[in-house]
Amino acid sequence: MLITCPYCGPRDVIEFTYQGDGNRERPDPASQNFEAWNAYVYDRLNPAGDHNEIWQHSGGCRAHLKVVRNTLTHEISSVAFARGDHGSAARHKAEDKA
């Protein structure tokens, strides 16, 4: 399986660490909503088909990536930085282009 890191290009899956379900939302740190905390820590979407996942390019630039991957075929349809606009790597890219 190859994942195309937006920073490093296509790399073998051996360079990446899976960080699981990317749909989870971490509650506000001060939140006392235990249901929300429990759901965040323990409950996962586990679809047969496209799945939003977090991967870390641990054997490369170490950025975390939001990956949409099909769990039936392992096909990857999109990869983006998990940091979104905050990502320094993404900023670098943009500056390179400019």
């Binding site: 660490t17 960080q19 870390q56 975390h64 998990a82 940091r83 979104g84 905050h86």
Partner: peptide, 14 residues
């Protein structure tokens, strides 16, 4: 290290 990076990159990018 991975734990810290995860929080900085995914949870608290700000």
């Amino acid at each position: 290290m991975q734990h810290l990076e995860y929080f900085l990159d995914v949870i608290w990018p700000e």
